[in-house]
Design a protein around this nucleic acid. Structure first.
Lengths: 335, 335
DNA sequence: TTGTAAGCGTTATCAC
DNA sequence: GTGATAACGCTTACAA
């Protein structure tokens, strides 16, 4: 007679008049006589029984928990990704254990240690550790970072994204391009955007310059550069490809404030394509990452870790979306 | 001899040459002989032992897990809040179980059911359920929503925030104010901003109009309104208080595109005060919510649920931060 | 088909 | 101070 504690499999068995094993079988969809099944299901409903995740995990080493390891939730891309990952996990009856590492390799190491000692079924990580030791065959899927041939990696098609941006800008009349990007200092899949961008520029014979800023650095030098080369008199660059929509919007606003009109004088394309919460459309012309799709793919990989061909690198298609900062139609809609 | 499974308390006991009980005592900081303690600690280090959360939770009903129940991570305020909550929990050795409800009351109900059947030590929730049944004495802390006298609620000082915004705008010369806000239809603490804003306006004899948009609604009517009343000829309103920085930035950009100069013709103040990731400063003049402080307070409340005077409503101070969309100094710095 | 019983890794209550 | 030992709620051979 435990008064205020939640009902256990034992209570269900007692109420249904069957044994523990039978209840367990019903719960786990194992073959059970029709009569017992009904009785057990009724008892479960009556008592409001819910399986204790911890007991189950202890016995079967199935935790129904996946760790989500991210550096921060302060960048919209990370936030949206986490949103989709969590929903995807919940849809499949899994729980999301969120861990924020704050770009700290030590913290990342700790998270993985926790996963490794079977406190989670696996981890989906967006890591910035320069030299991460991926020990053992712990189920791990990375996003935007290829860690080794035995660790599947999911990313958007960054190279193609870079190409697409260059192609669009050039097609829309740009004759001098700038590629602006913030990096963490740690190599990752997004680096490929630059390659794709430059390749297309070279192929079209359009000059292009790349500026990479460090993550921690102040943006002052960047804005100074933009001021000098774009804002005074005749802009030196008439097309800018930015590493994120966030950056694109900043540049956009900066140009506005300096009287440079977008997209008339300068056209801008960002990266990410996160729709604005209110308008439902993007806040600038952009290369859209299939975030929901990436989340789904990551969860698929983690949950079928052993069945799947491990080492698969999943590279999902990106899409160009006009958003008012380029001289094409803002939307592909009927308008 | 379990080869690839992580070491247990049993392994530690064997290596250290003591009993299970002794190891447990060392782990839990219970009185133990100096010699044993040292031996056990060495064994733990050698084996890389880490306590199994699940076994511990099963036995002691302490899960060291707090559920974070949020409608979405797609709004920067929610994302930043989750970021801070998670970090605060991790700092104290707790784990964050993230649940995204997508504004769905059924999903919220499910999350709470899970917490109730002791799968977590408590929940911190930002809920939009119109009629949430807070059953039992499950440790629950809400954010921005007062659910009942037995549920502690943490929020920023919304009323004061509204007052502050009005006071600033009026002090900076505005003579006709507009309050723009998006609501979910569910009453909550943020509603108080309007009251504070209107109170100050009335006190100063400055006319003010409030427009509240539904969450799901398209923003079209809003922009149409802004276009009609602000963008053509002499703006009818020369000061706008927005429900979030996101909204403020949209309005800002919309005005820019219509040739209305900010802050010269119209001044704007947002709400949230989330610093831009790159610049480290806010993207518009704003009322800053103490997000980290709110997270810390929520975690404090949850972890000391029974010790604390339950029902406490914690209302944390907000701050006005100039950010370029008002006619005052953009920063309080030395510059 | 169903029930019995062992054990997952801990903690806690006892004797020693 | 230390060490057996019985739970915690569940899964899973194995027995009936």
């Amino acid at each position: 007679m435990k008064p205020d504690t939640s009902p256990t499999i034992k209570d269900v068995a007692r109420v249904a008049g069957v044994s523990l094993a039978t209840v367990s079988k019903v719960i786990n969809n194992l073959p059970v006589g029709e009569k017992s099944r009904v009785k057990v299901e009724e008892a479960i409903k009556t008592l409001g029984y819910e399986a204790n995740t911890f007991a189950r995990a202890l016995k079967s080493s199935k935790t129904y928990t996946v760790a989500l390891v991210l550096p921060s939730l302060k960048h919209p891309f990370f936030a949206h990704l986490t949103d989709e990952l969590t929903k995807s996990l919940m849809r499949r009856g899994y729980r999301a254990l969120l861990m924020i590492t704050n770009y700290d390799p030590m913290a990342e190491e700790k998270c993985f240690a926790m996963v490794r000692s079977n406190k989670a079924d696996g981890a989906i990580a967006l890591t910035y550790s320069p030299d991460l030791t991926v020990s053992g065959k712990m189920p791990l899927v990375t996003i935007d970072r290829h860690l080794g041939d035995d660790v599947p990696c999911v990313s958007s098609d960054n190279y193609r994204g870079g190409e697409l941006a260059a192609k669009k800008l050039i097609g829309l009349g740009c004759r001098s391009l700038l590629h602006l990007r913030v990096t963490s200092g740690v190599p990752g899949e997004p680096d490929k955007r630059g390659a794709g961008f430059e390749f297309k520029c070279a192929a079209a014979g359009v000059p292009c310059r790349t500026i990479i800023l460090s993550d921690r650095e102040s943006d002052l030098p960047l804005f100074r550069f933009v001021e000098e080369h774009i804002c005074n008199g005749q802009p030196e660059y008439d097309g800018i490809f930015c590493g994120s929509d966030l950056l694109a919007c900043q540049i956009l606003r900066f140009l506005h404030e300096h009287g440079v009109s977008v997209p008339e004088q300068v056209q801008i394309i960002g990266y990410d394509g996160i729709p604005d919460r209110m308008t439902g459309s993007v806040s600038c012309s952009t290369i859209e990452q299939p975030i929901a799709h990436m989340a789904e793919a990551s969860v698929d990989l983690i949950l079928n870790f052993n069945n799947t061909s491990v080492g698969a690198n999943i590279c999902l298609p990106v899409k160009y979306v006009p958003g008012g900062t380029t001289r094409d139609e803002p939307q592909a809609s009927t308008e």
